[in-house]
């Protein structure tokens, strides 16, 4: 899922400070699961905005709304009436949701309430790690199910750099060496011979380098 992290409260308060009618919009999907922008967080931020306004002697109306997904226009449409009155929408969705919200309400100010971090997994309470960069050309079948693009700090395709030591990456003793993980997995599934295969120079045009990406599929078109 997409992992996000709440923005600093002071920054959020500063961003919504000029507005008199603020709608805080949580999102029911990824950011709910990673405890950054769901209903609970939306209610919390709304309370803090009210409190800050009260302390500053400002009048502000703060509402809370929680579309199931902000990345789906159908769900935004169903909350249109609730959001119509606001002059500022604080979206706690990922970057996609914030932008879709801005498309839905082209005349309103829409500000982000979270920083969208990465596609990743939850490993422990309050602990998420990156697993995928959406490069658009998956080679996990060659690398034992461990991604060299996202889990090697240098996105190496042909083995570890010289900075791999005792299973850790050179950038940080907390970070596991992606190629150590690949090696360990391939050795467990008896595919170490794959390591001598040269992974050819990548075509990055399937990644962000090809410009904003589009998927169009005839098979799911009416």
């Amino acid at each position: 899922m997409i992992i996000a992290e709440p923005k600093k409260l002071a920054d959020v308060l500063c961003a919504v400070e000029p507005y008199r009618n603020v709608a805080v919009a949580g999102c029911g999907t990824c950011v709910t699961v990673c405890l950054a922008g769901g209903e609970k967080e939306a209610l919390g931020v709304a309370g803090m905005i009210r409190l800050a306004a009260k302390e500053a002697g400002r009048e502000v109306i703060v509402s809370v709304t929680n579309p199931i997904r902000q990345c789906d226009m159908e769900f935004l449409d169903s909350h249109e009436a609730e959001l119509e009155e606001a002059d500022c929408i604080l979206s706690l969705a990922c970057g996609a949701g914030v932008q879709f919200m801005a498309e839905k309400f082209p005349d309103k100010v829409v500000v982000p309430g979270v920083d969208t971090k990465f596609i990743g997994v939850n490993r422990d309470l309050g602990y998420w790690t990156e697993m995928c960069q959406g490069c658009g050309n998956c080679i996990l079948e060659k690398t034992g199910g461990v991604c060299p693009v996202s889990r090697c700090s240098k996105s190496h395709f042909n083995g570890p750099c010289g900075g791999s030591s005792t299973g850790k990456c050179e950038i940080d003793p907390e970070t596991e060496c992606g190629w150590q993980l690949i090696y360990d997995r391939l050795s467990r599934i008896n595919q170490l011979d794959r390591l001598l295969e040269v992974n050819e120079t990548r075509d990055w045009s399937t990644s962000r380098d090809g410009g904003p990406r589009i998927v169009r599929r005839q098979d799911v078109t009416l």
Partner: peptide, 23 residues
């Protein structure tokens, strides 16, 4: 190119060295 005899995992580093020479 370069090689680090002290980096891990040793076998994979040797494989990488061989790949560099093959390349």
């Amino acid at each position: 190119s370069t090689a680090n005899p002290f980096a891990d995992p040793e076998e994979l580093q040797l494989i990488r060295l061989e790949k560099k020479i093959n390349a």
